[in-house]
Simulated scan of single mutants.
Amino acid sequence: MKLDNISSLGGSVSEELVPSRYALQVGEIDVLVVSDGVLPLPTATMSTNVDPDVRAAWFRDMFLGPDAFDWALNVLVVRSGDQTILVDAGLGGQFSGFPRAGQFPRRLAAAGIDLASITDVVITHMHMDHIGGLLVDEVKNRLRPDVRIHVSATEVDFWGSPDFALTAMPTPVPDVLRSTAQQFMKEYGGKLRIFEEEYEVAPGVLAWRTGGHTPGHSVVRVTSEGERLTFAGDAIFPVGFDHPDWHNGFEHDPEESVRVRLRLLQEAAATGELLVATHLSFPSVGRVAIDGDAFRWVPAIWDY
Score class of each variant (00 low, 15 high):
residue 2 K to N: 15
residue 2 K to T: 11
residue 6 I to A: 06
residue 9 L to R: 08
residue 11 G to F: 15
residue 12 S to D: 10
residue 14 S to W: 10
residue 15 E to Y: 10
residue 15 E to M: 10
residue 15 E to R: 12
residue 19 P to I: 14
residue 19 P to M: 12
residue 19 P to K: 07
residue 22 Y to P: 01
residue 25 Q to C: 05
residue 26 V to C: 05
residue 26 V to L: 05
residue 27 G to H: 02
residue 29 I to N: 03
residue 31 V to N: 06
residue 36 D to N: 09
residue 37 G to T: 00
residue 39 L to R: 10
residue 40 P to M: 03
residue 42 P to E: 04
residue 43 T to W: 04
residue 55 R to F: 06
residue 56 A to W: 03
residue 60 R to N: 10
residue 62 M to T: 08
residue 67 D to W: 07
residue 70 D to R: 09
residue 71 W to K: 04
residue 71 W to M: 06
residue 72 A to L: 01
residue 75 V to S: 01
residue 81 G to P: 00
residue 85 I to C: 05
residue 88 D to K: 03
residue 90 G to E: 01
residue 92 G to Y: 00
residue 97 G to P: 09
residue 97 G to Q: 12
residue 101 A to E: 01
residue 101 A to N: 03
residue 103 Q to P: 04
residue 103 Q to I: 04
residue 106 R to C: 12
residue 106 R to F: 07
residue 107 R to Y: 04
residue 110 A to D: 08
residue 113 I to S: 05
residue 118 I to V: 06
residue 119 T to L: 01
residue 123 I to Q: 02
residue 124 T to V: 10
residue 125 H to W: 06
residue 125 H to L: 02
residue 130 H to W: 11
residue 131 I to T: 10
residue 135 L to Y: 01
residue 136 V to F: 00
residue 141 N to G: 06
residue 146 D to L: 11
residue 146 D to I: 14
residue 151 V to D: 00
residue 158 F to R: 10
residue 159 W to F: 13
residue 161 S to A: 15
residue 164 F to G: 15
residue 173 V to N: 14
residue 179 S to D: 09
residue 182 Q to S: 14
residue 184 F to T: 14
residue 184 F to M: 10
residue 187 E to N: 12
residue 202 A to E: 13
residue 203 P to T: 15
residue 203 P to M: 15
residue 212 G to W: 11
residue 212 G to M: 10
residue 219 V to L: 08
residue 224 S to R: 09
residue 227 E to W: 08
residue 230 T to R: 13
residue 231 F to H: 10
residue 232 A to D: 12
residue 235 A to V: 07
residue 235 A to D: 06
residue 236 I to K: 00
residue 243 H to A: 10
residue 246 W to N: 11
residue 248 N to K: 04
residue 251 E to H: 12
residue 254 P to D: 11
residue 264 L to N: 04
residue 266 Q to V: 02
residue 272 G to W: 15
residue 278 T to W: 06
residue 286 G to E: 04
residue 288 V to E: 05
residue 290 I to K: 13
residue 290 I to T: 14
residue 291 D to F: 04
residue 293 D to R: 15
residue 301 I to C: 07
residue 302 W to N: 13
